[in-house]
C-alpha cells in the first residue's frame, strides 16, 4: 500500500491557518485554525483556538486551548486548560488542570487531577478522579474511584464499583481549592454493585453492598446484601431488597 505522507502544520509565535489533513500539527504561542483537522498528532502549547473538529491519534494540550468542535483521539493529554464545545471520544484521557466539555465524553480510561466539567454525560470503563467534577448527566463507568477535593456534582452514577472518598490533604492539591466550601459530592442517583461513599449527599443509592461513611446524607438506600456505616453519615430510609 502506498501511503502519502502529509505535511506538518506548525504555528509558532502568532498565526492562523486553515484546517486540512496533516501529519503533525504543532502550535506554540498563539494560534488559530479555521476548519477541521485530520492529523496524526495534535499538539498545542500556549494558547490556541480551533474552529472545527479534530480527528487525531494523540491530542496534547499544555497551556490553554479552545476547540469549537468535536475531538476524536486515541489519546488525550491535557496539562493546563481546555474547553471543547462538542463531543469527545478517546481511549485514554488524562487531565491535570481543567477541562470543560460541553457535550458527551466517551472513553475507556479517564484519569483526572484537577477539575472537569462535562455538560452532558460521561461513559468509560475506568474513571479515576482527584479533585472536583461536575457532570450534567450520567457518569457510567465500570469503576468509579473519586477522591474529592472540592464541591462536586453529578446527576447520576451507574457502574460496578463506585468509591467516593474525601481527598487526603497531604496530597497538596487541596491548597489549590478554597477551604470555605464544604467538600462534598451531590447526586440524584447512585447505582452499582459495590458502593462506598463519603461526604456524599444523594437522593437514592442502590446497590448490592453499600457502605455509607462520614459526611453522607442519603434519602434512600436500597441494598441487596449488606449495608454498613461509619462516622456521622445519615440515611433517612433504608430498604433491603429481597
Amino acid at each position: 500500500m502506498n501511503k502519502v505522507k502529509n505535511g506538518d502544520l506548525k504555528i509558532s509565535g502568532s498565526g492562523s491557518a486553515a484546517g486540512g489533513v496533516f501529519e503533525d500539527v504543532d502550535i506554540s504561542g498563539s494560534g488559530k485554525i479555521n476548519g477541521n483537522i485530520d492529523c496524526h498528532k495534535f499538539r498545542t502549547s500556549g494558547s490556541s483556538k480551533v474552529n472545527g473538529d479534530i480527528s487525531t491519534n494523540a491530542f496534547k494540550v499544555s497551556g490553554s486551548s479552545h476547540i469549537y468542535g468535536n475531538v476524536d483521539s486515541e489519546d488525550i493529554h491535557v496539562s493546563g486548560n481546555v474547553h471543547i464545545d462538542g463531543h469527545v471520544g478517546a481511549k485514554t484521557v488524562s487531565i491535570s488542570g481543567s477541562a470543560h466539555i460541553e457535550r458527551h465524553l466517551a472513553a475507556e480510561f479517564i484519569e483526572i487531577k484537577g477539575g472537569v466539567t462535562i455538560d452532558e454525560s460521561c461513559s468509560t470503563e475506568v474513571f479515576n478522579m482527584n479533585g472536583k467534577f461536575k457532570i450534567g448527566g450520567l457518569l457510567n463507568a465500570d469503576t468509579v474511584d473519586v477522591h474529592l477535593y472540592h464541591r462536586s456534582s453529578v446527576k447520576e452514577i451507574g457502574g460496578e464499583t463506585i468509591k467516593v472518598r474525601i481527598g487526603k490533604t497531604a496530597f497538596g492539591l487541596s491548597k489549590l481549592f478554597s477551604p470555605l466550601v464544604r467538600t462534598e459530592l451531590t447526586a440524584d442517583l447512585i447505582e452499582g454493585d459495590t458502593i462506598f461513599l463519603e461526604n456524599t449527599t444523594a437522593k437514592v443509592v442502590r446497590g448490592n453492598t453499600v457502605h455509607i461513611g462520614a459526611g453522607c446524607h442519603i434519602d434512600l438506600v436500597e441494598y441487596k446484601e449488606k449495608l454498613t456505616r461509619s462516622g456521622d453519615g445519615t440515611v433517612r430510609t433504608e430498604k433491603k431488597i429481597l
Binding site: T124, E125, E160, G192, N208, I241
Partner: peptide, 20 residues
C-alpha cells in the same frame, strides 16, 4: 429496572456496561 434485575439476575454493573 428493579424488576428487570430481579427477574433476570443481572447486576447493575452488567446493565450499565451493556448500556455503555
Amino acid at each position: 429496572k428493579k424488576q428487570l434485575l430481579e427477574l433476570t439476575g443481572i447486576s447493575y454493573g452488567q446493565l450499565y456496561r451493556w448500556k455503555r
